[in-house]
Design a protein around this nucleic acid. Structure first.
Lengths: 140, 140
DNA sequence: TTTTAAATTTGTAGTTATTATAAAATTGTA
DNA sequence: TACAATTTTATAATAACTACAAATTTAAAA
């Protein structure tokens, strides 16, 4: 079986022991750029990894968020979603199909500040909501 | 008993019949600028309005959001919060005390776009997270 | 290798925020 | 007053997530 050393190293760099389950979850997030929910991660991996439990998925995603391996997205009012791309970018969620898309930010430095009004900023989230291309097209 | 006509008119303008409960909820949101959760609204009004039900609070807040009377805030991963100020501004949530503060946005027009990548934008949310003044002070 | 300890995973059972539903109460109107 | 429409309410259900403790796996020591 092949092992992706870059993923292993990614976890080790964040102080996380790379178990089978953790690698599988990271692997899924790396190839899937749909900003999945915990449930979606579980459903995607469960067939190939039948022993995997939903609890492990939640625990692992929480651990990854704490260690900075990924970002929590709060754009969806129903579920937390996860983004393995920790670079500075925004998100758009279609209010019809619920899909989440990456959006580039024009002047990042103006947006990603260190502090405001004496408060120390550790996270910046920019979300847009509306109607995606596909849904706009289908309505016509 | 006094009646605040401006609040009545606000609801009528949004096509909402101003019932006792609806006025009470709107009144609370108008004076309370803490971006409360549905539960907080209920707990605040329940003593003075013992017949009020949590369901009504949820229904009313949902109605207000649909009609544009208020905005949903997704900054708190646990609950949806509500903001009666529909003007264009950002929010900061302290990850320690969980309080939510209003933040002014510098160049609004650059942020609040009509569309991106062919997608039609109807809402823009800018959230910051970190440590508020009070919590920073207490740590020292 | 065997033993032991530590870490991880798992299933189950909770908790909590929110929604669905239908009966009861209220309001507006003929 | 009678009737219909709307609103509110209580209850029950749902769904996302967490707590917990047992079982398993991994790592380290003997």
């Amino acid at each position: 079986m092949e092992v992706d050393f870059s993923m292993q190293e990614c976890l080790l760099r964040h102080g996380i022991k790379p178990s089978l389950q953790r690698m599988a979850i990271l692997g899924y997030l790396s190839v899937t750029r749909t900003h999945p929910t915990a449930d979606e991660v579980y459903n995607a991996l469960h067939p190939a990894l039948p022993t995997l439990s939903l609890t492990t998925v939640y625990n692992t995603l929480k651990l990854y968020a704490e260690r900075g391996v990924l970002l929590l997205l709060l754009v969806d009012e129903k579920n937390v979603r996860f983004d393995i791309d920790t670079g500075r970018h925004a998100h758009f969620q279609c209010i019809e199909c619920k899909n989440v898309y990456d959006i580039q930010i024009e002047n990042r430095d103006a947006l990603y500040k260190k502090e405001v009004d004496g408060m120390k900023i550790t996270e910046t989230h920019l979300y847009y909501k509306g109607h995606c291309k596909a849904c706009l097209f289908n309505e016509k």
